[in-house]
Every structure is written in C-alpha cells, then in structure tokens.
Design a protein around this nucleic acid. Structure first.
Length: 803
DNA sequence: AGCACGCCGACT
DNA sequence: GTCGGCGTGCTC
C-alpha cells in the first residue's frame, strides 16, 4: 500500500505539517508528489498537496485519499522544494507557500451541504424542511443558515434522515472543444472513400478533406468548411474511420491582436559589452546575478530580448518580471513581437480563467517565455535558462501578504537550482542591489548613455515658495505654464505628473481641515466616485459623503480627489484650447480603459496627459517633449526610511518619459523643498551621487543595505493588551539577539488602528543573526497559542513598507 | 479553520 | 434536572 504525505488546506499552526493518507489502489499509479488531492479531514473534505509518496507511516490508523484533483502534478519537484524554502524564509504556513505558486483558479472552494440519506424522503423530515427538499435532494448550508433551519437539520440528521456532505470545488472548468482526426492512414482512407455508398455525399467530402489534410481539426471548423453537420462526422467516427476527442483549449487574451514581428536589432557598442557576460553565463550554465544599470532609453529591453533568444536557442526557458504589466502594454508588445506565441503573459488585468490558461501553456511546455508581474516568478518551467527582473527597484515585487516574499529572492533561489543567470535591470537601482554590485556580489553591467546618444532631458527645478512670494497661487508655475503653451503651439505632447501621497482620494473640510476618517481604523476614508460612497480600504467600512462638516458644520466640505480633477479644471481655465486626457483611479477603473486612454494619447488625440503614479512607467511616445511634475515632495515626508529613494526613483523615471526619440525633452519639477538632495539630484539625474548621499544616511541610521530588518506587528482590540504584549516580545527579542542588533519599540504602528484593532510594532535591525529565524518562529508559535485571546502577531522579514 | 467534546449557569 | 454557553484540543 502506498502512502501520501499531504499538506492540508487549513492555515493554522497546528495543521502546518504533513498528514499521511493511504492511496487507494485504483490511484496507486496516478497519485504523485505535487498533485492536489481531496482528503477527509475530521468530518470534512478538504484539498491538500501531496508532497511525498512513501511506503510507511508512523501513524497506523490512516484514512484514504478520496480522489486526485489533477491528472498531472501542478507542482514539480523543484517547486515543491521551493515551497519549503519559502516557508522557512518568510515564516508562513506551508499551505500558503504552495498556494501562491498556482493561479488563483486552482484554489479550492468549499461547499457544505445536507443531503437526504439513502432511503429517506422529504416527508420523513420536520415540516419546516419539507419544502426545501421537495424538488431537490440537497440543500446548501448557507441557505439553511440564512433561514434558521439548522436546528431542524440537526434533528433530522440525528434521526438518520439527512447527512452532511462536504464538497471541494474547482473555480474554473477547463474550456474544451471537440477535435476530429483521421483514425486510419491516407491509403486506407482512399479505399474507404470508394466503399462509401453513392448517396453519402457529405461523408465523402469529409473523408476527402482528411485525405488532403492528414491532421486533426476542431469539429466546428470542419463542419463549417465542408458545410456538413456534426452527425455526418459522428457517423464516420462510428465507422472507426475518424477519431473524436475532447481537447482543452486556451482562452488567449491577445488572440484578436496582431503583433508586428520584430527581429534582433544591431547592438550598440555599450550594449555589446553589457550583454557579453550574460551570454557567457548562459553558455556556461553559470549562476550569476547581474545588475544591468542603464539610464532610461539606453536599450535594456533589447539586451533582455537577445539574452532570451540565446536561452531559447539552447532549448531553455525564460521568466521576465515587469512591474504590474497591465500598465505596460508596450512591454508586452515588445516580447510578443519578438517571440510571438512562444510567450505567455500573466498579469492582474486578466480574468482568473485567462490567467489559468496562460499558466497551463507554461505547464504544458507550449511556451518558452513567461512575462508577468510578481507571481510569474513561480512559472512552472522545468528548464529555466534566465530570469530577468525589469525595474528591479520597484516595491511591487514584494508581496505584502503571506507569504511575504520578494520576487528577487525567489528568482535568485530558482536560478541557483537551474544554474542560470538573473538579470536585474534598472535606471535607478535599489540601494540594496547597487551596494551588492559594489561589493561584487552582483555583477554590474552599465549602459551609461541613451541609444543614438540622445541627451537626457534637461531638468529644471522650480521653487514653488518663490512662486507664492511672487503672487502666483495657482498650481502651475509661470515657467511651466509658458512651456505648456509653447508645446501646444508646436503641436507637441506634454505629460503632467501629480505625485500624490498614497494613491487615494479623501474628503476634507476646507474650513476646519477635518478629514473624514474610518471609525474603526486610523486612516482617512477613500472617496469612490461610482457609488458616491466613502470606503475604508482596510476594513471595508462604508458611509455616504457628508454634506456638512461634522466638526464645524461648514458646507465647504468636499472631495479632494487625487487632485487630478482639480488640475484638469484649472488647466481648462488657463489653457482652454488644450485637449487633456486624465488618468487616475477614477478614469481607469474599468478593465482595458487604461490601455485605451494611452492609445488615444499615442494617436495624438490629446495634447496633455495628466495622471498619477500610474503614468510614470513604460510610456514611450515619440512626441512627448515636456514633462511637468506638479508636486515633487508629497511623498518625501512619509514615515518611511525609503522615502528619499522612492522620490528620487520616481522623479528620475518620470523625467525619462520626455524626449526619447528625435525631439529633445524638457522636464519641469515643481517643489517646496528644492534643497532636498533627492530632488536636487533627480534634477541633475545623478544616480551615483544620490547613491553616495543616501548610503551615508542609511549607514548613520542603521538601515538597509547596512542592516537587515524584521518587523513584528502586534494587534488586539484592547490598547493595553497590545502594549504589554509588544513590550514582552521586545524584551524577549532583546534577550535573544546579539549586541550587534538593535531592537526598536514597542512603538505605535504608522496605521495605529485597523478594524478596531490597535497595532503596535517592533523593528529589529541586524547584521548577522543566525538564530533570529528561530527566535521569530518561537514568537509566532507562542502567540499562536495565545491567539485565543485575540492577539495577532505577524512577522515580516525584510519589510518594504514599515506599516 | 471547523468541529466535537466537555464542564458550569438559567430555564422547561 | 436539562439546554446551551464557549474554553480546549484534535484533525493522518
């Protein structure tokens, strides 16, 4: 008898281990590690992952696996191993580590139902239940709960008339089509054609088709071509001349689009120098991490493409990560254009079914390249030849829920297994990566100039305090206004960038400054235009927008938006002839509207593109010659040690949108703190100097890359409980770590309260702490036991946002 | 997580 | 004396 070790779909400390099950003999050959199975767990049926098949178990009373959920493992050996690695490094439950590697569609859904017991009839049941079982033998538990039927159900089940069943359901069904193919050879087919009765005209046509085309075809296409009905084809299948099968098809989200095929471009001298070590690494099957540091427009993408080309020619596969790809259709186009249908694209803009289909293409080895956002790092390839992370400094590569992994770390781990290179590309590398490159841990490759040697756009920093002193109270400096007007006359395009703190809009009273905030959480409510409602992003609380201020009864309480609305209004006043496209959460809410708006801008249907963060990346339009940043310093004052770095990166990136082609570009940065080094140096686009300045600050304050961080957040409904619990944790930590490490806190979390739970945190800064993982695990374990009294403890190793 | 088992207060 | 409150512990 074979036995399977199964990780069950119950995220809890006590169940975070493998459970052994007997494999029923009919599945003995089928069930393999990496498959999902349905297993009995207590009274329920739940999903689990087989991690091992063995012959013995230390448990004697084993139950049997109910059924496999896959015919082929969904996780290969490498991914199973990677799951363990993820669990150890992010301190998450094993089940989360496996689930995160699969498309959401493969996450099980559970349904609890009651069913009439064999031999029982509706009339046997208590009266109130009878109508529910008149037409159907099952009743959904949810419905029973809503209608207060549970006591009756319990009685009926005790009497043996009903039984409770648990169903495990898949979220998506595979899309299937009928396929028809020849069951015999061409010669035999010709003979059979002769033998058909004279009146079987349609059947003859079908056979004739297969004599000409000796391959399978979709039933629908065949009947359409020959104008035959499916019964004609069926008859031939009956005669065993043709075969019929159900075949899985993929919904291709890009199927209606054509991609202009491109071929490798000749490389510049700098590109040739940069790509050489990568190609060598591919050639020699060497694991190495490259930091490709190149200014915007220096041709990093072409290096990616040609490296991938090399990998494909070696018969291997490539993973390319891009930040939130739905936002960069231009990037998709470049990969699809070069590698055509060898590319699978995984991003958040796809439906669950579409994502699943793209994932299946990878799993079935029908593609060679996976392009996608963070989670694409788990693409189920088995012969990876290169992993590329574009814009490696992007914070979206860090997942902020369990498992709290960073795609870069996963990339390096997988690349080690496959002994292949990792390429991290950026114009403004994260300090961590650049520091590693300096220490020769990563191999630094530089592309210092733009292609065709276009100059970087000239940047001018405008001190808005001066503007105010000069009597200009508008949000446009005189200079920016004049330049906008100039571009309008020249028929060139401009981009206006509004750097907003956070990305949401709020409602504020203009008289007293009161901001409508959530009663459960210490953050302001977000305005949602659609429902004229205000919503809390953390707990889901909703309330209507107040007409008068609850504090001072003023009527001047209103929506502050992302500010783009206001900018648009003001633009309309000062430049009424300008055609403006506004891009923010309000205008891009609907699927595809983002791409549509960009297309309109590209087609020259507008003069000015106005937007927030989301327009900072990936725009590459030839006619943009002016970029204006309306407020550069709004995110500089966030309580985050990376705020300077983020400001510098964002400003540099936005500036890079201008003048990427023939026309030279100009950039205007408006700020209230022009003397801050991250703004000043973004102005001169001097990354190296910024790096030095920021490294000095980080060293002073014991922050990464000089120290590692771990963040512990504790929450509870009672303020006193959180404080004392966090205090206890901090004391414990201090007793466990070496004197090289610093434990900060307990301190109030930047978001002091979420969903009526007070939040305190504790930050550990350390250099080398071999036992820290163990210590953190101990803390998690101890508080899992105390979770009963409502205390929640979460640990984030290498946090990105300290909130 | 769910669910069962089990031990103490307010009711037919 | 019973129904049910949710504290505790188990699920291969």
């Amino acid at each position: 008898m074979k036995i399977a070790s199964v990780i069950v779909d119950v995220p809890a400390k006590q169940t975070d281990k493998a459970f052994d099950y007997l494999i029923p003999s009919q599945w003995e050959e089928t069930i393999q590690p990496g498959m999902r199975v349905v297993v009995p767990f207590g009274p329920r049926h739940i999903q689990g992952f087989v991690i091992e098949v063995k012959r013995e178990s230390e448990f004697k009373q084993l139950r049997e696996i109910i059924e496999p959920m896959d015919l082929v493992p969904v996780l290969n050996q490498e991914l199973l191993k990677l799951g363990t690695w993820l669990t150890d490094h992010t301190l998450c439950f094993k089940i989360f580590a496996f689930q995160v590697m699969l498309p959401a569609a493969l996450k099980a859904k559970y349904e609890k139902k009651v069913k009439l017991a064999p031999g029982a009839a509706a009339v046997d049941l208590p009266m109130p239940l009878q109508p529910y079982f008149a037409n159907s033998s099952t009743l959904n538990w949810e419905i029973a709960l809503k209608n207060g039927l549970v006591p009756y159900l319990q009685r009926a089940s005790a009497e043996g008339f009903l039984e409770v069943i648990y169903e495990v359901k898949e979220k998506v069904r595979k899309k299937l089509v009928h396929v028809i193919g020849p069951a015999i050879g061409v010669q035999d087919m010709k003979l059979e054609l002769e033998r058909l009765p004279g009146n079987a005209d349609k059947q003859k046509q079908v056979l004739a088709y297969f004599i000409e085309h000796d391959s399978e075809i979709e039933l629908r296409q065949l009947t359409e071509k020959i104008k035959a009905s499916s019964s004609t084809v069926k008859a031939l299948v009956e005669k065993k001349l043709l075969w019929e099968a159900e075949k899985e098809v993929y919904r291709d989200p890009y199927e209606n689009r054509t991609f202009e095929r491109t071929s490798p471009l000749p490389l510049t001298e700098a590109q040739t120098t940069a790509i050489k070590p990568i190609l060598d690494s591919i050639e020699g099957n060497q694991h190495e991490v490259f930091l490709l540091y190149g200014v915007t427009g220096s041709g990093k993408t072409e290096i990616y493409l040609q490296s991938i080309q090399e990998v494909i020619e070696k018969g291997k596969e490539a993973i390319v990560l891009v930040p939130e790809i739905a936002l960069t259709p231009q990037m998709v186009n470049r990969f699809k254009g070069r590698f055509g249908d060898q590319v699978a694209v995984l991003h958040s803009g796809l439906s669950a079914g579409e994502k699943y289909d793209e994932w299946r293409k990878i799993q079935r080895k029908q593609v060679k390249v996976a392009v996608g956002a963070r989670s694409a790092i788990f693409a189920p390839f088995e012969n990876i030849g290169i992993i590329i992370i574009d814009e490696e400094h992007e914070t979206s590569y860090k997942q902020e829920e369990m498992p709290r992994y960073h795609a870069k770390d996963v990339a390096i781990e997988r690349a080690k297994t496959y002994s292949c290179p990792v390429v991290l590309g950026s114009a403004t590398p994260s300090l961590e990566s650049f520091a590693r490159a300096q220490k020769k841990v990563y191999h630094l490759l530089s592309l210092p100039t733009r292609m065709n040697n276009q100059p970087l756009p000239s940047v001018e920093i405008i001190d808005m305090r001066e503007e105010l002193r000069a009597g200009n109270r508008s949000m446009f400096s005189t200079k920016l206004f004049e330049m906008l007007k100039d571009r309008l006359e020249k028929n060139q395009q401009s981009v206006l960038f509004l750097n907003k703190r956070g990305h949401s809009s709020f409602v504020m009273c203009r008289d007293c400054g009161y901001v409508v905030s959530c009663p459960n959480c210490d953050i302001s409510l977000t305005y949602h235009r659609a429902g004229v409602q205000m919503k809390c992003h953390y707990c889901g609380f909703e309330s209507p927008v107040p007409k008068i201020c609850p504090e001072c009864s003023s009527e001047y309480i209103r929506y502050f938006g992302t500010g783009t609305q206001k900018v648009e209004d003001e633009l309309g006043k000062i430049l009424p002839e300008a055609r403006v496209i506004r891009m923010d959460v309000d205008t891009t809410g609907r699927k595809g509207s983002h791409e549509r708006l960009l297309k309109e801008f590209q087609d020259g249907k507008a003069d000015i593109l106005l937007g927030t963060q989301m327009i900072a990346k990936g725009l590459d339009f030839p006619n943009i010659t002016l970029v204006g940043v309306l407020s550069a310093d709004t995110m500089l004052h966030l309580p985050d040690f990376r705020s300077s770095e983020k400001t510098f990166q964002l400003l540099t990136q936005v500036s890079g949108r201008a003048g990427r082609h023939q026309l030279p570009g100009e950039v205007i940065i408006q700020t209230y703190t022009p003397e801050h080094y991250s703004i000043e140096l973004a102005g001169t686009q001097n990354y190296d100097l910024f790096y030095q300045r920021e490294m000095f600050v980080r060293k002073m304050h014991h922050y990464p890359p000089f120290y590692f961080l771990a963040l512990i957040t504790v929450s509870h409904e009672q303020l006193m409980t959180v404080m004392s619990a966090t205090e206890k944790i901090a004391r414990f930590l201090r007793s466990q770590v070496s004197n090289q490490a610093v434990v900060l806190g307990p301190s109030v979390s930047p978001i002091a309260r979420i969903n009526n739970r007070y939040r305190y945190q504790c930050l550990i800064k350390y250099k080398r702490e071999p036992n820290l993982t163990k210590t953190l695990k101990t803390i998690i374990d101890q508080h899992q036991n105390e979770a009963k009294n409502g205390l929640l403890v979460s640990v984030d190793v290498n946090p990105f946002i300290l909130m």
